[in-house]
């Protein structure tokens, strides 16, 4: 009898586990409306609730170039320049990096605590954290300023959608994508977007300066 009870429990546990798996962690994704609320209580002392238009409402899990798991909300609190790239990209991405470095230089009066630059890969299969780190080193990207991120394809797709980045894989390892540098305010809201390559950075610089002055 005892044995049977034990068996019953085991069976129940198993069957509930199966049920849970079938339940698909319903609606934990993609949003993070709920997570936004939790965060509001946990980090309220520094930042308070996320605003409605904050990109940091995305609750997805990311990994940085040091293999540390991070939430996008970690980027909060400083102005961010954000671009989506992939490291095996031969043509556009090096120019995007160059454009970002032009901006970094023009905005060098702001410390890494005030202005961050975030690169997000569109190619999570090849762009491992190690590869992102090597890419950062090869381009002399200051780790205090630059964050390189990767995640699951689905999470990358959501972020790309919010950043209005269009991209597609061409089955030969190339990823066509629109070249956009986004300025996020400290709350993670899109303030300005610089489109194209080799674009005159004046407007972007102005957007960042205005945000910094407002702080």
């Amino acid at each position: 009898m005892k044995r049977f009870t034990y068996f019953l429990f085991l069976a129940l546990t198993l069957s509930f586990t199966a049920c849970e798996q079938a339940g698909h962690s319903c609606c934990v994704k993609p949003t993070a409306a709920a997570a936004g609320k939790t965060t509001a209580t946990t980090v309220a002392n520094t930042t308070g609730a996320l605003t409605d238009l904050s990109l940091y409402n995305l609750a997805s899990d990311w990994t940085n170039q040091d293999k540390q798991p991070i939430k996008l909300e970690k980027l909060r609190g400083k102005v961010q320049l954000v671009a989506m790239i992939y490291t095996s990209c031969g043509y556009a991405c090096p120019r995007t990096i160059a454009d970002l470095q032009v901006l970094e230089h023009a905005l060098r009066k702001y410390k890494p605590e005030e202005l961050g630059i975030t690169l997000v890969t569109l190619d999570p299969t090849r762009d491992t954290p190690a590869r992102l780190k090597a890419f950062a080193a090869a381009h002399h990207l200051d780790a205090r300023r630059w964050t390189l991120l990767t995640s699951q394809p689905d999470n990358i797709q959501e972020l790309a959608a919010l950043l209005n980045v269009k991209y597609t894989n061409d089955f030969e390892g190339n990823i066509s994508h629109s070249n956009v540098i986004t300025v996020l305010n400290t709350a993670g809201e899109i303030i300005y977007q610089q489109e194209g390559l080799g674009t005159n950075p004046a407007e972007t610089v102005k957007a960042v300066e205005q945000l910094q002055q407002a702080m």
């Binding site: 209005n164 269009k166 597609t168 629109s178």
Partner: peptide, 15 residues
């Protein structure tokens, strides 16, 4: 569609 944002109808400056 899932990847509604995959069509390059905007100017994509890859070339």
């Amino acid at each position: 569609t899932a990847d509604y944002n995959s069509t390059m109808l905007v100017s994509d400056a890859r070339t």
